[in-house]
Structures are given as C-alpha cells and as structure tokens.
C-alpha cells in the first residue's frame, strides 16, 4: 500500500477545492467554472468534474486526493471518483441551514463506499453562532450505526487538512 486515494466531498462552498489546494505538494488540478445559478450569490466558481492533489505522509505514504463536485446533479462523478478509494472525507459547512442533514445526504449517497471503507467528518466554518455541537454530529452518526471521527477544521490551514487525512488513514488501519 504505497499509494492511497482519498475522496473529499460536501456541499458547494464547503471547501473541498480549498482543502486540496491547501495541502497538495503539486499544483492542484481544478475544474472550476463560472456559477450561473443561485450559488453565484455565494461564489463565482464551482467544481464541475474534480479536484486533484498529491501529498506524502511522514512515513512516505503517497496520498492522492480527489475532490468531488458538491451538487447532486454531478452524482455520476461521485460514482466515478470513489472507484479504488480508501475512504471519504465529508466536509460539512456549518453556516448552512441544516448541517446535520447535509452530512446525512452525503453519507446516504456514498453509503456503499463508506460501508466498505470509512469516513471522517470535517466541520468547517465554525466561526458562526448557533451551529450544532460536535456531539450532535456524533449522535446523528450513531443513529445511523456509524462511528467516525468528527473534527472541527479550517480547510484553509494545511495542518487541519492533514489532521483529517491522518484521522482517516488511522481509522482504516485499525478497522
């Protein structure tokens, strides 16, 4: 196992592209194009195919990172991108109306993949009031019969992104 593939998903604007750009050792591959729908109020570009980046862990392990598009209309890309993957990182944008439901939506859509592998939940944009406590996410996971790490992260920080990847790798090593 000298190369592993990790997939990052989550709602549009959660920070998948930002996370990969923050950590990749090579210039990341991006497929962002202009937003033409209501998302344009939030951001001018959105990923329509994939993001790609590479990094090397301390033990020499090579990690290939794939970011998905966030919108459900790109679910065909989700199916393509998980092939051969080791695990999933779900970024949950805590500024949105119902972050726990957002997490559930991605866990449902990636259910087969997650059942075979595992996932780490990254809570992003926590610098906002009235957002569910970390425990609420653990509770929602356990109601689904899932035990995955939930981390509060700033995806603009390389160290935070690497924390999620390390959590995923160790979750799967000891699974």
């Amino acid at each position: 196992m000298s190369e592993i593939k990790v997939i990052i998903t989550g709602t549009p604007g959660a920070g998948k592209t930002t996370a990969i750009a923050a950590i990749s050792e090579v210039p990341p591959v991006r497929t962002d194009t202009a937003t033409t729908d209501e998302l344009a109020d939030v951001k001018s570009e959105t990923t329509v195919a994939m993001d790609f980046g590479e990094l090397t862990l301390e033990d020499g392990q090579k990690v290939f990172l794939y970011g998905t598009p966030g919108q459900q209309r790109f679910e065909f890309m989700w199916k393509i991108l998980v092939q051969g993957g080791l695990g999933l990182i779900v970024l949950v944008d805590c500024t949105r109306a119902d972050p726990i439901a957002d997490m559930g939506m991605y866990l449902d859509n990636f259910a087969d993949f997650v059942a075979e592998t595992g996932a780490v939940i990254g809570l992003v944009k926590r610098d906002v009031n009235d957002t569910p406590a970390v425990d609420d996410f653990y509770q929602a996971l356990s109601q689904r019969g899932l035990m995955f790490p939930v981390l509060e992260v700033d995806v603009r920080e390389q160290g935070d992104v690497s924390l999620m990847i390390e959590a995923l790798v160790s979750l799967l090593e000891f699974a």
Binding site: T31, T35, T36, D37, L39, A49, F76
Partner: peptide, 27 residues
C-alpha cells in the same frame, strides 16, 4: 451552462437533458 444546467435543446429521441447537461460540463 458551464456549470451543468440545461438551457435549450432539440432531441429527436428521448434523452435525459438535465443529466446530459451536467455531464457535458464535466467532460
């Protein structure tokens, strides 16, 4: 659109326009 929404089409046979629109933007 470049971000995968169907705008206008003419199909001689049935094809899923919304899905094709998303796929065309990816490709």
């Amino acid at each position: 659109t470049v971000d995968g929404h169907d705008v206008v089409r003419s199909f001689k046979q049935d094809m899923p326009a919304p899905k094709l629109a998303a796929m065309m933007s990816s490709v």
